[in-house]
Amino acid sequence: MAEIVLRATDIEKDYPSRRGPKVRALRGVSVALAGASTLGVVGESGCGKSTLARVLVGLEQPTSGRIELMGELVGGTVGAGLARRIQLVFQDPFSSLNPRLTVSVALNEVLAVHHLVTGRPERRRRVDELLTMVALGPRFLERYPHELSGGQAQRVAIARALAVEPRVLVLDEPTSALDVSVRAEVMNLLSRLQDQLALSYVFISHDLAMVRHISDTISVMYLGKVVESGPYEAVLGAPLHPYTRALAEAVPLPDPEIEAGRRKAAAGEVLTLGAEPLYGCPYHPRCPLAEDLCRAQVPDLVELRPGHEVACHIAAREAPVGTGPAARADQKETSP
């Protein structure tokens, strides 16, 4: 494993609520991101994945827990020098770009604010370079956001994030607001930039196919907790947590042959934050496998296979540590 560029440990984030108890958006989330790799974060709306994104880049202060970026503790006395090493790219490029600034002005502004490039000709060169990186030519310099397509605007947003030479990009649903035909363009660009600049990504999305396509490791979140995490093939190919399985099975694949042979499995209504069960595993009210233990005791995130952690009593019992591929096939058969 390469060096860890970003490590978040036991992150808790509570929001006060006017009536009732506080909303616990993140409850003890830990993630680790290796250099030049991608961590995919998946989960339904309200699972806390966007809160995690905001906490990671420092837009929100965690209630407790620690975040280390390139070995240094983030927060407190650390200045902008470290903070700019991690940048956030939002879902909708049109609402994250200022409609009154041209591409050139928007990029120049970032460079000026961070005192990165001094002198107009140097800055001009850097802006050209950034646009080239995201495969936009100099003809886009004088355009306003409304003169860009969704894909182009998202590329400008990525260029702006890259302007401060980050090591980590947190991408919060970067393709969800885009049309199907331009999603591929943004995905291909992200892969290429990662190879060129040795960037690390936290890729947050509900689009499991895209997450699987780009991620090296994947964390599945449910009600503010990571319930499963590990290498992408293991987590989405042979999921151990019943929630991950339900999620993976719910995604319709663009292949009628596969769809025709698929099992049907309803997964129950999503619970919103604050409506979770008081005791036991947060997933038990929706889980088809739930037993008494699940209703009484919260399962810990346990490493069941090398690098593959799962928070499920039943998975832990049925897949003891160190089982090989044979046990994996067995596990699949016993799934609901």
């Binding site: 199907v180 035909s181 999603r183 591929a184 995905m187 291909n188 892969s191 196919a209 895209m210 699987r212 396509h213 780009i214 992408y232 694949l253 663009p254 292949d255 596969i258």
Partner: peptide
Amino acid sequence: SLPHQGTLHRQPL
């Protein structure tokens, strides 16, 4: 443009 069964990991779409 969509990753599907048979698309290699990180293969350009």
